[in-house]
Amino acid sequence: MDDATNTGISEPLDLVKLSLGERVFIKLRGDRTVTGVLHAYDAHMNVVLSQVEETIHFVDVTEEGNPLPPRAERRNVEMLFVRGDGVILISPTQQ
């Protein structure tokens, strides 16, 4: 609690605010994740990122229906706008 007060985070959006200009990890619907430098956001969690790496996670299934090890497809985008309604989670990347 003290920590929380100390950081002055009074609402969750502050957490996002603190990540402005920093690299964030964003989990999106549809098994997608995105990391990039957060440039802007709004209350809808619309977000503008740069130096983005988008990852799409697949879990393929064999013909028998057994899941194969998860697979990921990545791509890099210089600048990306992410619409807020797809956002599940935002976290500053650990470092």
Partner: peptide, 21 residues
């Protein structure tokens, strides 16, 4: 989606936006 997040609740707002540590 059924995923759980365990953490220290930093704060939340009226949208049910949640900040966890």
């Amino acid at each position: 989606s059924g995923v759980d997040y365990h953490g220290l609740l930093t704060c939340l707002d009226g949208y049910m936006n949640v900040a966890l540590e």
